[in-house]
Design a protein around this nucleic acid. Sequence first.
DNA 1: GGGGTGGTAAACACGC
DNA 2: CGCGTGTTTACCACCC
Length: 682
Amino acid sequence: MMVESASETIRTTPSNQNGVSSLSSQSDGGGGREGGSNGDTNGEISPVDLLHLQQQQALQAARQFLLQQASGLNSPGGNEVKQSPVQVPVSMAMMSPQMITPQQMQQILSPPQLQALLQQQQALMLQQVNTHTHTHIHTKQLGSKQLAFQQQLIQMQQLQQQHILNLQRQGLVPMQPTATMQSLQQAMCPSDLQQLWKEVSGVQSSEEALKQAEGLDLSTNSSNSTSAFPKAASAHISLHSLANGQSHTPKRDRARLFEWISSFTKADSGDDHVSLYPKGILPSVSPHSHEEHAGSHPLYGHGECKWPGCEALCEDMGQFIKHLNNEHALDDRSTAQCRVQMQVVQQLEIQLAKESERLQAMMAHLHMRPSEPKPFNQPLNLASSGSLLKRDSDAYPEGLPHPPTSAAAPITPLRQGPSVISSSSLHSHSHSHTHGVGPIRRRNSDKYCTPIASELAQNCEFYKNADVRPPFTYASLIRHAILESPDRQLTLNEIYNWFTRKFAYFRRNTATWKNAVRHNLSLHKCFVRVENVKGAVWTVDEVEYQKRRPPKMTGSPTLVKNMISGLGFGSLNASYQAALAESSLSLLNSPSLLTPSAASLNMLHVGHDDVSSTVEQVNSNGSCSPTLSPQQYSHQVHVKEEPTELEEDSRPVSLLAGVTHSLPLPSDERDLEEDLPTEELE
DNA sequence: GGGGTGGTAAACACGC
DNA sequence: CGCGTGTTTACCACCC
């Protein structure tokens, strides 16, 4: 393209180096700080709404995890896995406006923190919503639509999360031992679940338990009779038997209970405890799950038993196992609890399907590409089709920014593969399958609009623990790894280590991806090999990297802009709005919006990744993001033979100062600006 | 259909 | 010779 001037030798100060961790800490801190004080929500939003939103918030994470885990369950071995790679939900932040990353929720934050964070964020969101409705009348119509849309998305997320959490409880979905219980409680919000479980444990009548179990998620949808799930009979029976079972379970019911329980397959995970897995949903025997089972247990975390309603303290795994075998053996109560859990899951699935439908209708109405109603299948049905999402983007018009990822999730035909909700699928025309292996394919998102930095940061913990393929290209990952390093240079081995350290997925199939890494390093001009004292290191030529990017972004910022303006950023100029588009979601989550005083904090947190990706703002057509700071460039162009050009962008950051503080604009996100009036090219 | 891009596989070279 | 590192080619798939 026409950006060929000459401006190499841009020496940079390897100053930054705390990317992912800092970002994750951001949300972490934010969540913990703001704590449950969400009383500042104005009167327009009822507590019920808050509660509801909170639940929705939680669900999102659940769904992703669920889908991933579910797909994982279907792929027993490494080789199989290879054919059914799980494309991950890329940016939770992008997926939906008010989204919290699952990782953060479930892994980073402690249960209380999660609770607090959820509340706070919901409050924040609502506040923004109100702001929107009050101050931006010009976008009212679209805004309201979008608001409804967002809420729908959130609702979907909620369902998903609840679903996953429930699965985890059942032991169907192995996961980090922490926060499962609490997360679930959050998802169910008003501690319904906990109470339910206690009741199920024998304190209360089954009728009540049933009522609660059903009421949990059906509250928003009264008509679930159309559900594809034959919830009725067995479920009800189970609950009834459950109720009676505690004190005086009729023989018949007891028999039923055991019959039911026998429908499960006992899976010995290696420990001496017995895990129950529904037939056909046996836990993956991949090395990963084994590892997890070796040192942890889905029902054990934070030193206590996570069995629904239990919370017994166990000093160590051994004690827990003992406890599990003693207290939660295969008996009436445990069986009943499992049934209840099943019921809950089913209900959630039902509602998820419904909400999915609704969402689709909404999207169609909003002129997003009318796609055929694709019923949301059970996540567990995710068969390793071997192909990733196929052109998820098809569901969305080119001109419109893809709706929050989570939204698409339900819409995405699961039959297409485990990748399901990969956010990449949404806002990126994710490359679907390649050889059945879920390539990182995240082409567009990666190149045009997806902030790998922010996404990685936000989902750091997630990728670290979930054996899912990161939806980033190798090139972007390599680049990120290098830029994240103190010296902005890494040896091949260090890159390898980064991959394995950051992504559980890369802890296996090493031959494949390592080869890919080497291939990418050699192939892409943006990676420069530099002879070092201790050997060769790889650096990133940002200019070259940027060159790969098309001058324009995919999708029009229109919708996004509206969304943003609706959120109170209408005063920002178009480019800023566009830039914020992607981050609008995380934005909403940002405590700084709620408490401007915390803005600076945010800034700090965002710091690194922002910096590392700052460069991404410079693209071939020379458009630069206002937030870009030249000094932040750290590529070593000097190594490159061809004179690369780097548009000087001395634009004062102050321009964005106010915004920037509250709006972490991870590099890639700013790609959105590329299309916008940013006539500060030289 | 072609070009660009990305992922995977594989062959090969080179140095330790 | 084996291994790690790099390079290169080929093939496939997707998007524009």
